[in-house]
């Protein structure tokens, strides 16, 4: 069971993780805004995550921690 932890306030909402996700289960939160004023990335379906870390590898700001 994979677990993602987001440092939400470091996210700049670039969406590179969203594109990198092979399962298409990441999105930029439509209703949340972080400290920097961006819509941060979030996981939509925790159970579907395979913990491949593609999102974290493409994230320029080390927002995502991946555990498996």
């Amino acid at each position: 069971m994979a677990k993602l932890t987001f440092k939400t306030d470091n996210c700049k909402g670039c969406g590179l993780c969203v594109d990198a996700c092979p399962k298409n289960i990441l999105q930029l939160s439509p209703d949340k805004i972080n400290k920097k004023g961006h819509h941060p990335a979030e996981l939509t379906d925790e159970a579907a995550c395979i913990g491949c870390a593609s999102c974290a590898i493409m994230c320029p700001d080390c927002v995502i921690k991946v555990e498996r």
Binding site: D9, I57, D61, C62, I64, K65, V66, E67, R68
Partner: peptide
């Protein structure tokens, strides 16, 4: 098990 985390050689500062 941690698969991916920020490397130790980078500090906590948010990049500009």
């Amino acid at each position: 098990m941690v698969v991916f985390d920020k490397p130790h050689s980078l500090n906590e500062m948010s990049m500009h």
